[in-house]
């Protein structure tokens, strides 16, 4: 995972202290698992996937 994080952030021009990569890798891995669950839900729920446009920064 570590080389992927390095590659990802370097591709965005980020120079990150070496000491931060382990924790960033953990977070990336945890986010990936949560995203997989979300993707499954989005596929099962056409209401979210196809009808709802992104938004949410306004109350209403």
């Amino acid at each position: 995972m570590k080389p992927l994080i390095i590659q990802l952030l370097e591709s965005k021009g980020m120079l990150i202290p070496e000491s931060d990569y382990d924790e960033l890798s953990e977070l990336y891995e945890s986010a990936k698992i949560q995203k997989q669950a979300l993707d499954r839900s989005l596929l099962e729920d056409s209401d979210i996937a196809f009808k709802s446009v992104p938004g949410g920064d306004h109350v209403g």
């Binding site: 979300l38 989005l42 209401d47 979210i48 996937a49 709802s52 446009v53 992104p54 920064d57």
Partner: peptide, 8 residues
Amino acid sequence: QAQQIRRK
């Protein structure tokens, strides 16, 4: 996608 979840 996070904003879609937010709307829901």
